[in-house]
């Protein structure tokens, strides 16, 4: 178990390292030269030189690369081109905001999805099943940003129940304590709509998967045996079928988590939610490359750590897996 953990963590570090390297070379070698946005050719050659030195661009590529890696290890992403602030300062709070939105909705989506999937499998063959499958597939097929926009249109613009976006109303202050901020009614007021949209959107996948997994389990011999023993159908479903059907769903958790984290880019844009995704989109639009790099790496880290946790969870759920 310990050996497995160590291996898994080492591989996680390797993955992050590979992605960081990929980022470095993409930014250095692809045609769009990011430095062009800050170092204008209109400047005097001397000023250009000075700027290059400031960003370390006068050194050979491998020196830049080692310096880059060194900075990443120290979580130092340099200064934003746009805001002249430390990038690490900018992203810390943003990361928390993203997690606050994604994690609760993913947990809710999986819990609800599994229960609903089991329910429609139980109702197999009936109207309920067909209509839920059609509805869920259609809902899953719509782009999440579009659903978000429609919800804002209906609930915020027309019914005026929820705010249009953002995480807090402008001009609200909750003192220095971050906790007070995230526990305020105002936060939950802003949180409710994006949370509901992401949850509803992400319910579909586990729900459909749970349904088909349940249907497969129903065909197994041990379910027949339960029936022959005279066990009640409800008991069979809750005690036997659901447990076994849940495992394949659990394997998809890292995949979905990855989608959700990566998808936060879109959802945060729609709801103007000040998370990593929105920051990244804004940074790309104004060619603020240090920020883009940092955001990308942080989103990647969230994805990779998410995969890791999901893997471990799966091992706990499935007694047949023994980590060596």
């Amino acid at each position: 178990m310990l050996k497995y953990l160590v291996n898994r963590i080492l591989f996680m570090v390797l993955t992050i390292y590979v992605l960081a390297t990929l980022m470095f070379f993409m930014f250095r070698l692809l045609p769009g030269d990011p430095t062009m946005t800050v170092i204008s050719s209109a400047m005097s050659p001397k000023a250009q030189e000075a700027m290059k030195r400031q960003y370390g661009l006068d050194k050979p590529l491998y020196r830049q690369y080692t310096a880059y890696l060194n900075n990443i290890v120290h979580l130092d992403f340099g200064y934003s081109f746009q805001h002249s602030r430390r990038v690490s300062q900018m992203i810390a709070g943003r990361m928390l905001n993203t997690l606050l939105l994604i994690l609760p909705s993913m947990i809710a989506a999986y819990a609800l999805g599994v229960i609903m999937g089991a329910f429609i499998a139980y109702k197999r063959g009936g109207r309920t099943e067909i209509s839920s499958v059609i509805l869920a597939t259609a809902f899953q097929s719509a782009p999440v940003f579009w659903i978000g926009m429609l919800c804002i249109f209906i609930f915020s613009v027309h019914l005026d129940i929820f705010p249009l976006g953002h995480i807090l109303s402008p001009g609200m202050h909750y003192g220095k304590s971050a906790l007070a901020k995230y526990l305020s009614l105002d936060f939950f007021h802003h949180f409710a709509l994006p949370f509901t949209v992401i949850t509803a959107y992400n319910i579909c996948f586990p729900m459909l998967l749970m349904r088909s997994s349940m249907l497969e389990t129903f065909g197994e011999d041990f379910i027949e045996l339960c029936k022959m023993k005279g066990m009640g159908e409800k008991r069979i479903i809750y005690k036997h079928a659901m447990r076994n059907s849940f495992l394949p769903i659990a394997t998809t958790l890292p995949l979905i988590l990855g989608w959700a984290v990566a998808g936060s880019v879109v959802i945060e844009t729609v709801f103007s939610w000040p998370g990593l995704g929105l920051l990244m989109v804004e940074a790309v639009q104004c060619s603020d490359y240090p920020v883009v790099q940092a955001c990308f790496l942080m989103i990647a880290v969230l994805t990779i750590v998410g995969n890791f946790v999901a893997d471990l969870l799966y091992g706990i759920l499935d007694p047949r897996i023994v980590y060596k």
Binding site: I16, L30, A262, M280, L302
Partner: peptide, 14 residues
């Protein structure tokens, strides 16, 4: 481990 959409955005912007 590559975040899908962010990666594409970076690619496209470059």
């Amino acid at each position: 481990g590559v975040p899908f959409l962010p990666f594409i955005i970076v690619m496209l912007s470059l």
